[in-house]
């Protein structure tokens, strides 16, 4: 692990106004270093998904700043945000969110094509990535022809195929049985070791969180615990 700060969050606040004002995040301060494998935990409604969506620039904070590799992403245009999401970020969600009309290979190719890569090259790279997650024999299956664990593996391959510097997982194993869940965890861990990418996982599975290097606990939109394994 290097000391390079890949994410610097300063006084991050997110308020939803929906009839009443909901302070989902309240002055969060957080630095994340390159190559970290950390878990954000907390009871539901504590703001962990909100924090994750903000880091993934899928949402805009009410106040505060997020620096990704030293660049403030909160004030970017949609086009720039899209480019950063494509090139620097990889998303894995609780429900795999694969595109149902496309097979596994095409799903994994998609981020590469969005990035402007040639189809033939993208196909080759996507195939390698699927082989790396152990699905070399499921390239042409569609989402509905794959098991939950397999789908999530495709989603992992898709999140990582563009070699993003940050991988974001929102309950990435939340929808899987414990065996598949362990498999996915091991896979993420392996990829983290091999590619030195930063992994930020939101989970309410304390067992899984305990296996990460750093746990950030949120309660009512505030960081109440930030513990590193030694």
């Amino acid at each position: 692990m290097s000391d390079e700060k890949i994410i610097q969050i300063t006084n991050l606040t997110r308020i939803y106004v929906d009839g009443v004002e909901i302070r989902a995040l309240d002055g969060v301060e957080l630095d994340i270093e390159k190559g970290e494998f950390l878990a954000i935990v907390g009871p539901s409604g504590s703001g962990k998904s909100t924090l994750l969506n903000l880091i993934g620039i899928l949402d805009t904070p009410t106040s505060g700043t997020i620096l990704l590799k030293g660049i403030d992403v909160t004030k970017m245009s949609d086009k720039e945000r899209s480019r950063i999401r494509n090139q620097e970020l990889g998303f894995i969600f609780q429900y795999h969110h694969l595109l149902p009309d496309f097979n596994a290979l095409e799903n994994v190719m998609m981020p590469l094509l969005i990035n402007g890569m040639k189809t033939s090259k993208a196909r080759e790279k996507a195939r390698e990535m699927l082989e790396e997650v152990g699905l070399g024999d499921r390239l042409y299956h569609r989402s509905n022809q794959l098991s939950g664990g397999q789908n999530q593996r495709v989603a992992v391959a898709r999140a990582l195929v563009n070699n993003p510097s940050i991988v974001i997982g929102d309950e990435p194993t939340g929808n899987l049985d414990s065996k598949s869940s362990d498999n996915i965890y091991e896979l993420l861990r392996k990829l983290n070791r091999e590619h030195n990418q930063t992994f930020i996982l939101v989970t309410h599975d304390e067992r899984m969180a305990a296996k990460t290097d750093r746990i950030i606990r949120l309660v009512d939109g505030k960081v109440v615990e930030d513990s590193r394994k030694v």
């Binding site: 949609d78 899209s82 950063i84 999401r85 494509n86 970020l89 998303f91 969110h97 981020p111 969005i114």
Partner: peptide
């Protein structure tokens, strides 16, 4: 709708 959300997460701009 869900897919559109995912496409955006993958870096597809609103314009696209």
């Amino acid at each position: 709708t869900k897919e559109i959300g995912m496409l955006m997460a993958m870096g597809v701009s609103r314009r696209s």
